[in-house]
């Protein structure tokens, strides 16, 4: 049992009881490698910052939101027009979601190109990839909640995609929608996923990801010499994080204030889908791929092939540390770099095409 000293102030009083100084000592000893690609480390922390913004604004929104088709739209309109700063909180939530996915993608590709997934950091990659898909899950489940025309039809089209998967397609659509059509059950189901299930899974995975980061420290790329001494996490690296968070906050506030989130007309399930409807930018690669492929390939509907491709690509992304055995042996693996460059080019081209042609 530690010796208790006579406290001099509130800080000492608190420190005697919760031992904050031991946490500070731990963070002072933790070092971030100093090398020429250290800049890319910042995006993990920035993703955490935007996730925190999502939690904070999401909690505020859920106070007024009503997850029922007859009142969801009205509750969102109420948030935007009657709740003090409600329009700003909703705009911050919407724009922060976009920035979060953007930052997570930059983090994903920087880890991929620097081969930071190589042994012994495979589990960090697996948990990171799961977190990326959870972020896309958040975006997908949150999109229906305002219950306006775009939200309704985008979710209707999106939940239709798995239908062509052999044997389990219909079942998957039914699970996503809570029935055959987008209705009350779908809204309740996606709402529960968005505010309870996905946040719990994400929080647990972020904790796991961070613990692994403590265990293995940040990766140093192959053939790169780290300079000594490293960057002490506290206070030196925390200042770098703080600058990136302030820059992120500036960007977020500018977007939310200059282009507040809009609310379309209330969804009418009996109306036909509006012309030129397209999903958010992070789903445009899939959207454009579905538009580009011919209706049938080898007598099989194109959706089946695209679904198959999505499953293969997802599995491939997940298994990168296993497939790239050269990187784990500390050797260069230019094939994986080339695959990454091709994937980036394809994504950018598909997104540009979707914006230019719809």
């Amino acid at each position: 049992m530690g010796e208790l000293k006579q406290g001099r102030g509130l800080g000492d009083w608190l420190n005697e009881r919760v031992r904050l100084s031991s946490l500070v000592d731990f963070l002072r000893q933790k070092e971030v490698p100093r090398q020429k690609h250290s800049f890319w480390y910042i995006f993990g922390g920035l993703a955490f910052f935007f996730f925190s913004i999502q939690v904070l604004t999401g909690v505020l929104l859920v106070i007024y939101y009503s997850p029922r088709p007859d009142s969801a739209y009205e509750s969102v309109r109420f948030i935007g027009s009657q709740v003090p700063f409600g329009w700003l909180i909703r705009s911050l939530h919407g724009w922060s979601a976009n920035l979060l996915i953007g930052v997570v993608l930059i983090h994903f590709f920087s880890v991929f190109f620097l081969k930071a997934y190589r042994r012994p950091r495979e589990m960090m990659w697996f948990s990171g990839v799961l977190l990326l898909f959870l972020m896309l899950g958040f975006a997908f489940t949150g999109f229906l909640l305002p219950w306006d025309t775009k939200a309704y039809f985008a979710t209707k089209i999106g939940t239709e995609i798995p239908r062509t998967i052999p044997l389990i397609g219909d079942w998957m659509v039914s699970i996503l929608r809570g029935g055959e059509y987008i209705a009350e059950e779908s809204l309740k189901r996606l709402f529960a996923l968005h505010v309870v299930i996905l946040p719990l899974l994400t929080s647990a995975l972020i904790l796991f990801h961070l613990i692994l980061n403590q265990v293995h420290a940040s990766s140093i790329p192959l053939r790169i010499e780290a300079r000594q001494p490293g960057i002490p996490f506290y206070p030196n690296y925390l200042f770098r994080d703080a600058i990136s968070w302030l820059v992120g906050l500036t960007l977020l506030l500018s977007l939310a204030l200059l282009w507040p989130l809009q609310l379309g007309l209330k969804a009418d399930p009996f109306a036909s889908a509006p012309v030129g409807i397209r999903p958010e930018w992070y789903f445009l690669t899939l959207f454009e791929t579905l538009r580009l492929v011919p209706a049938q390939i080898l007598g099989v509907a194109s959706e089946v092939w695209v679904n198959l491709a999505v499953m293969v690509v997802t599995g491939g992304i997940f298994l990168v540390p296993i497939l790239d055995r050269k990187a784990s042996r500390q050797q260069a693996s230019p094939i994986f770099t080339a695959i990454g460059v091709a994937a980036c080019l394809y994504m950018v081209t598909a997104i540009a095409l979707a914006y230019l042609t719809t």
Binding site: I243, L253, S254, L257
Partner: peptide
């Protein structure tokens, strides 16, 4: 409003940056 916010955040970034430079010098990593 955006201009005021921009100035406030720019000052905050500058303060954090100069403090970071100080602690980097102390740690011998500048």
């Amino acid at each position: 409003m955006l201009v005021i916010l921009g100035v406030v955040i720019a000052v905050m970034i500058a303060l954090v940056y100069f403090r970071m430079k100080e602690v980097d010098e102390d740690a011998g990593i500048s």
